[in-house]
């Protein structure tokens, strides 16, 4: 569920960057306070482990599809929430840089969606409370399953909110939620199962690894502190969003109206009809916010002010020409002609 640059607006990307940046700074401070030098290489190697484990695909029973490890939970279990979050954030950063997974602007969103909810909500509030230092297999499994599901549900919901707030996608809120949440229920169960399996294996083979991890963060994270942090983060995000929105009139507010208004337009496609009826039958989240806003926006067509044939044609011709010019500039800049890749890949 990597969020992508192409789907978010700068306001949303920037706000999420601010929130995640704050979380990184806070976690870094906490890790520094722990002053456990051993964690420097341990975090690095465990991050590489998550990265490597994510490359291994396995089949999910009864579905035929394949899954992979998210890793936030197991990192929290091994390192505690702060170092766990930093490690997962670093994995996401490397993925964004190397493999363009998600992208640089969406990185803040991804850290929040995949890191914050698992490391700071699901792990301390659910997993630690249920599993504690227990060695009972059932308890460990229950804890991991519940925490896995909760973490992924929250993360998936955040993806929906971020996408809608950006206004690039046309998916209405309810449809998107109905698409995302059930898929991530399955993914969360798988994540929980795998986490429990790995934790049990480590506990049997090398109990001291988990024991030391547990001692370092005896109480985990307090509920109050977490809620306060989250509240502050949300306030910050809201502030940033409104600032951006007011600075850019055709930005956020307009987009939100736009997105929500779409379902009222003539819906012809069969898929849309299907989604629409699914929505109507299973609507569980009130959308009065969006409806109310819609009345202020009489026709979506007006948001595109100039449906002008002249402009359209000029745009198309000019656009193609620009591409051509860029291409020629590229060829001119390149000195040695087209390069073959093999040259770069000496061992």
């Amino acid at each position: 569920m990597h969020m992508a640059d192409a789907l978010i607006s700068p306001a949303v990307g920037g706000a999420m960057w601010a929130v995640s940046g704050g979380l990184i700074a806070y976690s870094a401070k906490k890790v520094r306070e722990e002053a456990d030098d051993r964690k420097v290489p341990l975090m690095g190697v465990l991050g590489a482990f998550i990265f490597a484990a994510q490359m291994i695909n396995f089949s999910i029973p009864a579905t035929g599809s394949s899954g992979h490890l998210g890793g936030g939970m197991i990192l929290s279990i091994l390192l505690g929430p702060y170092a766990g979050f930093l490690t997962l954030a670093s994995v996401l950063t490397i993925q964004a840089l190397f493999f363009a997974d998600g992208g640089l602007l969406a990185l803040g969103c991804n850290m929040l969606n995949m890191g914050f909810f698992t490391c700071f909500i699901a792990y301390p509030l659910i997993h630690r409370r249920i599993a504690g230092n227990s060695t009972d297999g059932k308890r460990i499994m229950t804890a991991a399953l519940l925490a896995g599901v909760a973490g992924l549900q929250l993360g998936a919901f955040a993806v929906v909110i971020e996408t809608l707030a950006s206004g690039i996608s046309e998916l209405p809120f309810r449809t998107f939620v109905l698409l995302m949440q059930p898929i991530h229920l399955a993914i969360g169960l798988v994540e929980g199962t795998v986490t429990a399996g790995i934790a049990t294996l480590v506990m049997n083979a090398r109990p001291e690894i988990l024991a030391t991890a547990g001692q370092e963060a005896p109480a985990g994270v307090s509920v109050k502190k977490t809620l306060l942090t989250f509240g502050a983060a949300a306030a910050l995000a809201a502030g940033a969003l409104s600032w951006f929105a007011s600075a850019d009139p055709d930005g956020l507010e307009w987009s939100m109206l736009k997105t929500s208004g779409k379902e009222e337009l003539e819906s012809g496609g069969r898929l849309h009809g299907l989604l629409d009826s699914v929505q109507k039958r299973t609507a569980f989240l009130p959308d009065y916010n969006f409806r109310k806003a819609e009345t202020a926006e009489p026709g979506a067509g007006q948001a595109w002010p100039a449906v002008d044939k002249g402009t359209s044609a000029a745009g198309l011709i000019g656009g193609l020409l620009t591409l051509l010019l860029a291409w020629i500039a590229g060829l001119a800049l390149r000195r040695g002609g087209v390069k073959s890749l093999s040259r770069y890949n000496r061992p």
């Binding site: 520094r32 420097v40 690095g44 991050g47 590489a48 490597a52 930093l86 670093s90």
Partner: peptide
């Protein structure tokens, strides 16, 4: 802690 973490992660990838 974060920038050093990136360096170590990249090293052991």
């Amino acid at each position: 802690p974060f920038s050093v973490q990136l360096l170590f992660l990249n090293r052991f990838l």
